[in-house]
Design a binder for these strands. Structure first.
Length: 403
DNA sequence: TGCCGAGTCGGATGTACCGG
DNA sequence: CCGGTACATCCGACTCGGCA
């Protein structure tokens, strides 16, 4: 008895990648059946016969099926769609059930790009959809003449956040690495043990074949931990957790335990001032205030993300009151002062140097949620220049502003 | 201990696409 | 045409080691 599947993708390339990933996972062959060019249909068979019929729907939102609606109905926190989503068509043919979401990335994981996908992972993890992030490692940065400058790597906190999300949301949410085609031999060798395509395929087979998940999940988790260790070990400066610290941190259950552990491990955090973005005098003082109160770095010092232990919140509230006085609501101050869970603070360069080009970084909140789950409070500090209209909007409808 | 060059890494930038 | 979104580099402030 075969199953009818659909692959919803950003575009046809992502759909086909998913199609072949499924076929390879089942050691099966792909055969096109007669179908229209814009809605191609395929059959996947192994020696035992027909396993799946699969339709490819390229381009989110072009079809009469609203995936967003399905996601929302599951309770998804964000409007984000992954590269490829596999659904099973339910017997009545009216509805689809989401089985698996995948992201395929061969972009260089540099800077904010590295956490560009965290929103999607969170969307899926939070509603219990298995999520696999296929990424490459060892990609090189090129100069203007396309000459290799240096290989680039993601901050280890990025793969780590998938592991915490897996654990917190009790769902498969894993990065799967392979070697970037442009990677140097030495790099390939260094990461040789952590490439996980084979385990990834076994995992896909378990998920789509609806069988119990075998050891591939555990293996991929171990591989991710190893990658995190290699990434932190090869850094020039000690600005992230190292070695077994990651596994220790991963094993902590509550955000309270995490805060205590971070305090014990003495990882102070301070705001990096790059002077690239115009800031106010008040912001400088605000930044100093957080310093005095005592922020802890969460695994990686350079990421604009820090933690205030609950016992410091009273002090923070007093400092905020002294700094902003009546322009900040008493209700807010009270909220900060009364927190009995750690407060996660994220620093968003909300606006580009040119105020008309605003692109707030929406991915930092998801990164924080993946690391700490839904129980912690998150405070977003948005700074940088903005158009006058932004102020009016902020006063009238903050909800509208953050859209 | 102050200067300098190389390398690192967060984030700024360029470009494409899409729907209205 | 324009605002919104996303991807793929590219940029340059910062750090650190070497050296006088």
């Amino acid at each position: 008895m075969s199953t009818s599947l659909r692959i919803h993708g950003d575009n046809i390339i992502e759909c086909e990648r998913m199609l072949f990933l499924i076929a390879n996972s089942f050691s099966a062959t792909v055969q096109r059946v007669i179908s229209s060019p814009y809605l191609p249909r395929f059959e996947i068979r192994d020696e035992s016969g027909l396993l799946f019929t699969i339709e490819l729907l390229a381009g989110h939102g072009r079809w009469n099926i609203n995936l967003q609606e399905i996601l929302q109905s599951y309770g998804a926190p964000l409007r984000e769609a992954t590269d490829a989503i596999v659904t099973r068509i339910l017997p009545d043919e009216q509805q689809e059930e989401i089985l698996l979401a995948c992201e395929f990335s061969s972009a260089l994981p540099a800077g904010n790009n590295a956490w560009q996908r965290n929103g999607r992972a969170l969307t899926c993890a939070a509603v219990g959809i298995p999520y696999l992030y296929f990424a490459e490692i060892g990609g090189v940065e090129l100069d203007e003449n396309r000459v290799i400058k240096a290989p680039r790597f993601p901050n280890p906190i990025i793969p780590f956040s998938y592991l915490t999300a897996s654990k917190l949301f009790r769902v498969v949410c894993l990065p799967i690495y392979s070697a970037s085609p442009s990677s140097l031999k030495t790099i390939r060798l260094r990461f040789d043990q952590v490439f996980g395509l084979e385990e990834g395929q076994r995992l896909v087979k378990c998920i789509l074949g609806n069988t119990l998940i075998d050891d591939s999940y555990e293996k991929l988790t171990q591989k991710a931990l190893t990658i995190i260790e290699i990434l932190s070990e090869q850094r020039q400066r000690i600005d992230t957790l190292r070695q077994k610290q990651w596994a220790e941190f991963l094993n902590l259950e509550t955000s309270g335990q995490k805060a205590i552990w971070l305090e014990q491990n003495q990882v102070k955090w301070s705001k990096k001032g790059a002077d690239k973005v115009v800031i106010t005098q008040t912001f400088k003082r605000l930044s100093r205030l957080f310093q005095e109160v005592g922020c802890l770095s969460i695994g990686a010092k350079d990421i604009p993300l820090c933690l205030i232990p609950p016992q410091q919140c009273q002090k923070l509230a007093e400092g905020l009151m002294a700094l902003y006085g009546s322009s900040i609501s008493a209700e807010f101050i009270k909220w900060i002062a009364s927190l009995n869970l750690p407060l996660i603070v994220i620093w968003i360069t909300g606006f580009k140097p040119r105020g008309d080009d605003s692109r707030p970084d929406r991915r930092l909140v998801p990164l924080a949620r993946m690391l700490f789950g839904n129980e912690v409070n998150i405070l977003s500090v948005v700074y940088g220049p903005a158009k006058a209209g932004m102020w009016t909007m902020l006063q009238n409808s903050p909800q509208l502003l953050i859209r």
